[in-house]
Design a protein around this nucleic acid. Structure first.
Length: 537
RNA sequence: GCCGGGGUAGCUCAGCUGGUUAGAGCGCCAGACUCAUAAUCUGGAGGUCGAGGGUUCAAAGCCCUCCCCCGGCACCA
């Protein structure tokens, strides 16, 4: 038994999450469940990331104050997570008091340790909206190509990187008025001071993570600003920073720590020290590739600078993007699948399977409705669902639902049970290697194997002439369902729990041997676990 | 521009420390079976592995050139 901290990137809740956001939450939930079913000691954490300018902007658009907006959004997310069976040990939000307090103390500690300094900067300010404008919220004419709608950070027409101050006729992207240049002070995290340690740490990470960081590390680490001039956020605790907040990114990542403290308070157990400070703990972060620099450089650097001995991220399970057909998910162009749309088409657990089976672990993967149809109706319903159903129905019809004894053990039975155990073992191994997509495939393979065995052994013929043989076949088939149930659990926990109750399993744990359900067990009459769905596309 | 990832059967992808006739799933075609939600099982067709050159006894895999797609390049979360 080992200790694990399982994290999902915190969704930024300025809008409804789409499949890409759900991917990390579902992956983390999947992984935490897998680890628990293996008997490990696991804490899983995530939460709503709710501060910062984009939320303020969204609130202005909706004529609300930011807190109202995020209260609403957080509630919506909780419902969505429930619908997708995501039950982390603590799904919280960055507005919680424990978090805010932890962040303030944390940065004061960093200041004390000499990693914070103050510097003057010039930024564009919108007097109408009373906001310092992030680069992206400034539009204007591109100085290179003359494109009228260039953003402050990049021109979408010619692709060149820009500075907002370079734009000709800059405008506030929110109200369109002309921003003014304004001097301000900001506090910076002295990243270069940790250059050596970071380089050493990065060496411990996977190759693909390293390659993402290459250009950043080659250029050398630069100080990173940690304050912002907006209102909606955690007040910066530094002297003279009264009107400033902590930059959302720099505080949201600390939620991985504060989330454990908050959980600890709720259940009154010493979790924070035993997990965050014990080097034996393995931490796993499920994030998108866009988040790699923050989790592989900034977060570890912050943890180092605190000098508290916190565990640095051990495994960063980053994924590429899920594309919608050929196109990237896009809010503005309404490309993609959003949580509530997804739920109106199919049960959240079907989506869990589809999302995990598509997990873009190597390259971008693309989603289309034809494949979705096939995955739900063929993989889930026809292969897995029908295998379970045909076996349990046969058991009910011919054996009154009582698991028969194993009266013979043929060569075929041996091959079948061994192959099933092998599949289970590789399922486990792949999961520990974080090759979740392949592990999920094993679950389907298990059902295929079951169908092959059942079809080739023909218990419906055997029962006419050789009831003892039929007994053994059904006995083996029932055992295989228990193994499939174990693999199903992290993928579709509610379905698996329902199945477990049908086959009279109290707890879903890794089966150590072939027999899980002893002869003589009375099994309920099954109802189909899955239904086909009709999709119009 | 710089860095990185990708371009493999109709579709989604695996294979990529070079080595038997390039794989899987779906789709398609044919057959088997009837316990089961017309579900399942078996077999088959189908690819000049983005283009061109090179290294090698041997390349999808290594090197060079080029084309296409995607992402990052730090105050966007």
């Amino acid at each position: 038994m080992s200790k694990y901290l399982v994290f999902s990137a915190w969704p930024y809740i300025n809008s409804e999450p789409h499949l890409g956001t759900l991917l990390h939450l579902i992956s983390a939930d999947y992984y935490a469940r897998f680890l628990k079913s293996m008997g490990n000691d696991v804490i899983s954490i995530s939460g709503s990331d709710e501060h910062g300018t984009p939320i303020e902007v969204e609130a202005i658009k909706q004529h609300k104050n930011p807190k109202e907006l995020t209260d609403e959004m957080h509630k919506r997310i909780l419902k969505i997570l429930e619908a997708f069976s995501v039950e982390l040990d603590n799904y919280t939000r960055t507005e919680n008091e424990t978090h805010k307090e932890f962040v303030r103390d944390f940065y004061l500690q960093l200041e004390k340790n000499g990693y914070i300094f103050k510097q003057k900067t010039v930024q564009l300010y919108c007097e109408n909206d009373k906001l310092f404008l992030p680069d992206r919220l400034v539009t204007g004419k591109c100085p290179y190509c003359g494109y009228e709608k260039a953003n402050g950070d990049q021109c979408d027409n010619c692709g060149r990187l820009l500075e907002p101050t370079l734009l000709i006729e800059p405008r506030c992207a929110i109200c369109g008025s002309k921003p003014v240049k304004k001097e301000t002070y900001h506090w910076f995290f002295d990243l270069p001071k940790l250059n050596k340690e970071i380089l050493k740490y990065v060496e411990t990470l996977d190759e693909n993570i390293k390659s993402y960081l290459k250009s950043m590390l080659n250029e050398g680490l630069k100080p990173r600003s940690i304050t912002r001039d907006n209102k909606w956020g955690i007040p910066a605790p530094f002297e003279g920073a009264e009107n400033k907040t902590i930059y959302v990114w720099m505080e949201a990542v600390l939620g991985y720590l504060s989330g454990v403290i908050e959980l600890e308070k709720k259940i009154d157990k010493n979790l924070f020290e035993t997990f965050w400070l014990d080097p034996q703990t393995t931490s796993v972060y499920f994030i998108g590739k866009d988040n790699i620099p923050f989790h592989a450089i900034i977060l570890p650097a912050l943890l180092m600078a605190s000098k508290k001995g916190y565990n640095l991220p051990k495994k960063i399970a980053s994924t590429e993007f899920i594309l919608f057909g050929q196109a990237k998910f896009s809010k503005s162009q309404h490309i993609g699948v959003w949580a509530s749309d997804a739920l109106s088409v199919a049960d959240g657990e079907y989506w869990r399977y589809v999302i995990l089976a598509l997990r873009p672990e190597r390259g971008d993967s693309s989603f289309n409705w034809q494949d979705f149809d096939k995955m739900v109706n063929s993989d889930l319903n026809d292969k897995v669902g029908n295998y379970i159903h045909r076996v349990l129905t046969f058991l009910n019809e011919r054996f009154s639902g009582i698991v028969p004894p194993q009266e013979s053990f043929t060569k075929e039975d041996e091959i079948f049970s061994k192959s099933m155990m092998d599949i289970q073992e590789s399922f486990i191994k792949l999961n520990y290697e974080l090759r979740i997509k392949d592990a999920v495939r094993k679950f389907i393979e298990a059902a295929e194997l079951g169908n092959q065995y059942f079809s080739s052994q023909e218990p419906w013929n055997q029962i006419k002439s050789n009831k003892a043989r039929a007994s053994s076949i059904i006995y083996n088939a029932v055992q295989s369902i228990a193994h499939i149930n174990f693999m199903m659990y992290p993928i579709m926990p509610k379905k698996a729990t329902k199945l477990a109750s049908i086959i009279k399993l109290e707890k879903i744990r890794k089966p150590e041997k072939w027999e899980v359900i002893p002869s003589g067990t009375k099994i309920e009459r099954p109802t189909p676990l899955f239904q086909k769905i009709v999709i119009k596309y």
